[in-house]
């Protein structure tokens, strides 16, 4: 059976430390102001604040990046076919074809696609490219998003965000019932975000409270 790459993120273990956001930022040398992976606070109105009133409080975190949907709305709406889905489940962008119309950003129900809005050359520190050399530098005015580190996956490695201080992130073949991700989803009740939309994401979350 064909591979279907997927990710599992354990929200019970996740402490919102932002390491996965940073490792992605470094690996894919993203410019200032642009983040492919973000960790949102499920709590109060500010980062790291809970909801409720002292002392009845609750807080958890949601790391969110491209969900690599099986039925991606972004692929459907891209007018020039720059957004495409591979056989093994990865949803990718062809940065040579993207015209920067941002329809995919509008269409994504998770809000995980971002856009290269500004030239930040002057402000970048350091002033040379860092991170992985296999990841292309994106020109101004194109859409970007998590690629499941396709440059690493194709070499048999895992995405850069998997080594997490909380050991809360897992990657593997969802079509293999014996893979770690499949077992985690089954045993710990993995769920998808906005599953009612029918996008069938490849990223599953394990509940924060269980």
């Amino acid at each position: 059976m064909a591979k279907r790459y997927g990710m599992v993120i354990d929200l019970k273990r996740c402490v919102g430390c932002q390491t996965c956001a940073l490792v992605c930022k470094l690996e894919n040398h993203q410019p200032l102001g642009l983040w492919w992976n973000r960790v949102l606070t499920i709590g109060g109105p500010e980062i790291d604040t809970p909801f409720g009133t002292y002392p009845d409080l609750q807080m958890s975190f949601l790391p969110i990046a491209c969900q690599h949907c099986e039925d991606p709305p972004c692929v459907e709406v891209c007018p020039v076919g720059a957004a495409y889905k591979r056989e093994d489940g990865l949803v990718l962008i062809n940065w040579e074809t993207c015209i920067g119309c941002r329809y995919c950003i509008v269409a994504c129900p998770y809000g995980v696609r971002v856009y290269n809005w500004r030239s930040t050359k002057e402000q970048e520190i350091p002033d040379f490219q860092v991170g992985a050399p296999e990841v292309p530098a994106r020109p101004l005015g194109v859409g970007e998003k998590c690629t499941f580190c396709v440059h690493r996956v194709d070499k048999g490695l895992q995405p850069a965000c998997i080594p997490c201080p909380s050991r809360a992130r897992f990657f593997g073949d969802l079509n293999d019932p014996n893979s770690e991700v499949s077992k985690l989803i089954k045993e710990k009740g993995g769920y998808q975000l906005k599953s009612e939309l029918g996008t069938n994401p490849s990223v599953f979350y394990l509940p924060a409270k269980r």
Binding site: E76, V77, P79, G81, T97, C98, G100, Y103
Partner: peptide
């Protein structure tokens, strides 16, 4: 458009599923 010089791709590789 972010990359207006690539507008030609509308004609080279249009995606018929796209509303645009």
């Amino acid at each position: 458009l972010g990359r207006p010089e690539r507008a030609i791709y509308f004609f080279i590789s249009p995606n018929w599923e796209s509303s645009m």
